[in-house]
Design a binder for these strands. Structure first.
Lengths: 340, 340
DNA sequence: TCGCCGTGCTGAAACGGTTCATAATGTAAC
DNA sequence: GTTACATTATGAACCGTTTCAGCACGGCGA
C-alpha cells in the first residue's frame, strides 16, 4: 500500500523562489514569453521543469476570467447519432484549443438542470444543449446571465437564440418520395408519438410527399405508432399490422433501430425484403449498410451538426443569433429497391 | 441583434449586502445551512433568488480544494463499447454527486496528453484512462503529483496502480471452446495484429481451448490477420480464405463488426450461417442480436467496467491499489448453433 | 552633466469564495 | 448578580493566479 504523497502542488511562488525571480516574471514566462529576457526565461523554465509545476486552472480562471471550456448536453451518449454530433463538436473546438465537458441528460430535465448548473459554476463560455423537453425558459435565463447557448438538434422557438437542426420534414418527404418513385401507392409509417418533434415533422414530410404525388394521405398513408423507438418497437409495429391482416408493400420506419426490428420480423414471417416489402429507415447508423439486406436510410449530417453548433458558440459575443437547418440526404440501398 | 449584458455576475458579497448579513453567513447558508437561524437563512435565500446568484466554482475550488470532478479519456466515443463504459462511469459518479469530463483521444498520444494536462489544471480528483499506447510513465508521474489514476480496459503493469480490465484470454477461450463443443475440430480466427493487446490475448485464449481439448494448435487453428477491425476487414478475411480454397467450418471474429462483414460475405457466396459455417463474434454490440442471423458473441461487462473504475477512483486516498479483472460471458445465438 | 526614454523586472492588489478565531447575545446554574 | 456555556454572526486571512503601476538601469541626445 502506497501512501500518496500529500505534498502540496508547486505554485508559481515556488517556481519564482527557485528561479530567483518574482511571481510576475514567472507569469510572464507562461503567458507572454517575449517580454522576458531569454536568460531569465531559461532559468524559470528549468525551475518549472524541476518542480513539475502545473498551473492551477481555478486560480487562473478566477483572476483572468479566461474561459476555454464549453459544455455539451445530449440526450443519450449511447445513441450513435449523438456521439457523432459530439465528435463534430470536439473537432471544431480543437481548432481553437477549446475543450468540451460532455454529459448526457437521459431525457431527464433534472439531470439537464444539474449539469447546466455545474457548467455555469465552472464558468463555461457557453453550452450546447439538446433539450430534454420543449420547456427552454431556463436556457433563456442562463443566457441572460452571460452564458452562451446553442440549441442542438432542435430549431429555436425564439429568433434571438441560435440553433442547429436538421430538416425532419424534408427527411420524411425524401423517404416517402423515394418509395412512391419505386411504384408504391400506399406507405406504411412505423412512427413514434407526435409529441416528439422529430416524429411529428417526419410525418408531415410523408404527407407532403403523398400530396405532391396527387394521393390522399387519408388513404395512402397507414401510420402505426410503435411503443418504443427501437428494434422491439419495430417488431411490435409489424406484428400489429400482420394481425390486422394488413400486409404492407412499403414501410418507412422512424429510425434505423425500428427498421431493424421490422426487417427481422418480416423475415421471420417469410416476407422478403425488398421483393415483397420495401423498407426505409432513418439515421443511417453505421451498421445500416452492413445488414444482410443493406438498409435504405435517411442520413443526417451529424458531424456538421456538431461542428456548426460549436462554431456558433465560439463566435464573438454580440454576434447575431442564427438558426441553421441542415438538409438530410437519402441513401438508397437494397432494402427498398426490388431486384431488376 | 441582442447585445449580451456584460453585467458582472453577482458575487457572494452582493448577496450579503442585499440580505444585510456578512459574507461568512452567506457561505454558511450555502454550505452548512443548519448553522444559520431559519429567519436569517430565509433572508439570504431570497437575496440569492433575487440576484440569480450562482457560485463561482473556480473561487470555490481554489480556496476549498474541494473537487467533485473527475476526468475520463477513452479511445473512441463512437465505439459502443466505450460509450457503455462511460455510462457506467457516470452512473457510479452520480451516486456521490461527482461529475465527469469525458474526452476521446482517438488513439492519439498527443491528444491524450493534452486532455490530461487540462484535467490536471482544473484540479480533477483523478482520471480514468484507456491509454493510447503501452507507454504509461506519464500516468505514473501524474499520480505522483496527487492525481488519482485508474487504467481502463487495460491491466496495470505495476502493482500499485489500479486498473479495471476484462479477461480477454478467457474471452477467446470461451468462444473457441463453444465452437469445439459444437463438434468442430478446426477453428478459423479472423484476428487483428498481435501488438494490440486484446488480439494477442484472445489468440492465447483460443490456443488454450484447443490444447485443453487435446488438439494441436498448429493444425487446428487457422489465423487470418485482417487489415482493419471492422466489417471491411471481415469481408477481406473471408475472401482471403476462399481464394486459398479454404472453406472453414467454424469462424471466430475478433469483434462483432468483423463478424458482420464475414457474415455478409459468406452469405453472398451462398454459404449458409450457421448450416455451413458457425460464426462467433466479440463485444455483443446492440445489434448483434438483431441481425437476420443473430450473432453468437462474447459479452464484456462494459457498464460494470465503468462503474468499478469510478468506484476505485472515489475511494479514500491511501487505499491500496487494486487490479480488477472481469470475466466475459458467451452469449449463444443462432449463428453458431446448427439447427437440430 | 543632465534629462528622457525604453526595457526588464518587481511586488502588491484583485478575483470570489471558504474557514476560523472572535465577538455578541441569550440561557442556565449557582 | 455572577459565571459558564451554547448559539449565531462577523470579518479578515487565505487559496494561486494575472495584471499593472512603478522602479532600476543603461543608453542617447542636447
Amino acid at each position: 500500500m502506497t501512501i500518496p504523497t500529500a505534498r502540496r502542488r508547486a505554485s508559481i511562488a515556488d517556481v519564482a523562489r527557485i528561479a530567483g525571480v518574482s511571481v510576475g516574471t514567472v507569469s510572464n514566462v507562461l503567458n507572454r514569453p517575449e517580454r522576458v529576457l531569454p536568460a531569465t526565461r531559461e532559468r524559470v523554465e528549468v525551475a518549472i521543469e524541476q518542480l513539475a509545476f502545473v498551473r492551477n486552472g481555478s486560480a487562473r480562471q478566477l483572476r483572468a476570467g479566461t474561459i476555454t471550456t464549453v459544455g455539451a448536453i445530449v440526450l443519450d451518449l449511447s445513441n450513435p447519432f449523438f456521439t457523432d454530433v459530439v465528435r463534430g463538436i470536439e473537432h471544431r473546438l480543437e481548432l481553437d484549443s477549446y475543450t468540451a465537458m460532455v454529459a448526457s441528460s437521459d431525457d431527464d430535465p433534472a439531470r439537464e438542470h444539474r449539469y447546466l448548473r455545474l457548467f455555469e459554476e465552472h464558468g463555461v463560455l457557453g453550452v450546447m444543449v439538446v433539450p430534454a423537453t420543449d420547456e427552454i425558459s431556463h436556457l433563456l435565463t442562463l443566457r441572460e446571465r452571460g452564458v452562451g447557448v446553442v440549441l442542438l438538434d432542435r430549431p429555436s422557438p425564439v429568433p434571438d437564440l441560435s440553433s442547429v437542426a436538421v430538416d425532419d420534414v424534408l427527411g420524411g418527404e425524401l423517404a416517402a418520395r423515394h418509395l412512391l418513385e419505386q411504384g408504391h401507392t400506399r406507405i406504411t409509417f412505423l412512427n413514434g408519438p407526435h409529441y416528439i418533434r422529430q416524429c411529428a415533422d417526419r410525418h408531415a414530410g410523408v404527407v407532403r410527399a403523398l400530396e405532391a404525388a396527387g394521393l390522399d394521405p387519408a388513404e395512402a398513408l397507414v401510420e402505426v405508432t410503435v411503443p418504443e423507438l427501437n428494434a422491439d418497437g419495430g417488431e411490435a409495429g409489424i406484428r400489429t399490422l400482420l394481425e390486422r391482416g394488413d400486409r404492407p408493400s412499403a414501410v418507412f420506419c422512424v429510425n434505423d433501430l425500428t427498421a431493424l426490428g421490422a426487417l427481422r420480423t418480416l423475415r421471420r414471417e417469410g416476407i422478403s425484403v425488398p421483393d415483397d416489402v420495401a423498407l426505409v429507415g432513418y439515421d443511417d447508423v453505421t451498421f445500416a449498410a452492413e445488414l444482410a439486406t443493406p438498409l435504405t436510410s435517411v442520413r443526417q449530417p451529424t458531424h456538421q451538426l456538431g461542428e456548426r453548433a460549436a462554431d456558433l458558440l465560439l463566435r464573438p459575443p454580440g454576434s447575431p443569433a442564427e438558426q441553421v437547418v441542415f438538409e438530410p440526404e437519402l441513401v438508397v440501398r437494397e432494402s427498398s429497391t426490388r431486384a431488376a
